[in-house]
Amino acid sequence: MLEVTGLTTKYGAISALRDASLTVGAGEVVGLIGPNGAGKTTLLGSIAGLLPIDSGTIRFDGNDITSGAPEKILRAGLSLVPEHRRIFADMTVEENLKIGGVTRSGAERAELLDEMAELFPVLRDKWDTPAGYMSGGEAQQLAIARALMSKPKLIMMDEPSLGLAPILVDLVFELIDTLRAQGRTILVVEQNATRMLRAADRAYVLRSGEVVATGTGAELLDRSDLFDTFVGG
């Protein structure tokens, strides 16, 4: 479904990604793990069209979407839940969700709103509250719900458990399970490697901008050298 080949991205002089490749098949949950600064966020940002790409190609559903504008890539069916959630703090929960469904027709948007209210009971209770007043866990759910409002074929999440208390981290992973059960395709960047590997069908390990390992979640969990990737050695 998503095919990234030989992606290289630079921030000024900084090479944030070097020749990174990955694929995501329909219905899969794929994890992207690696230490901080490994280039995970850059990879998602490059796919979503937020960052300029130096070389490599990105294909989605057979179409070349390399270096497309973010709004075009979303319309192709790829939605990103950005790092730090980046909800619109001054706007209400409902308004945030509506923006998420900006590409949908009015009737469809209303349907999706009902669907989100059901999927995320927390949001229903805060429907008319400005999103800036929500706690980290609530805001994360809003960010995910907002991304779902575009009915994406593939949803990408950047560090959904960042800055959340352990119990809320559980909630995020439960949510990923729920979405998987609905048959959605998900690509998640996560720092919580063990949890991610348990939740994912497959995963890629990134280090210093390069893909250094790949396999099913279970395979990678058994890799004894994985700890070194994070802790060094």
């Binding site: 709004e71 979303l74 980046r86 900006v102 590409t103 907002r146 575009s150």
Partner: peptide, 12 residues
């Protein structure tokens, strides 16, 4: 409030 994120949501 956040131009990039709005574009991520599909705002042209």
């Amino acid at each position: 409030s956040d131009f990039d994120t709005a574009r991520l949501m599909g705002v042209k």
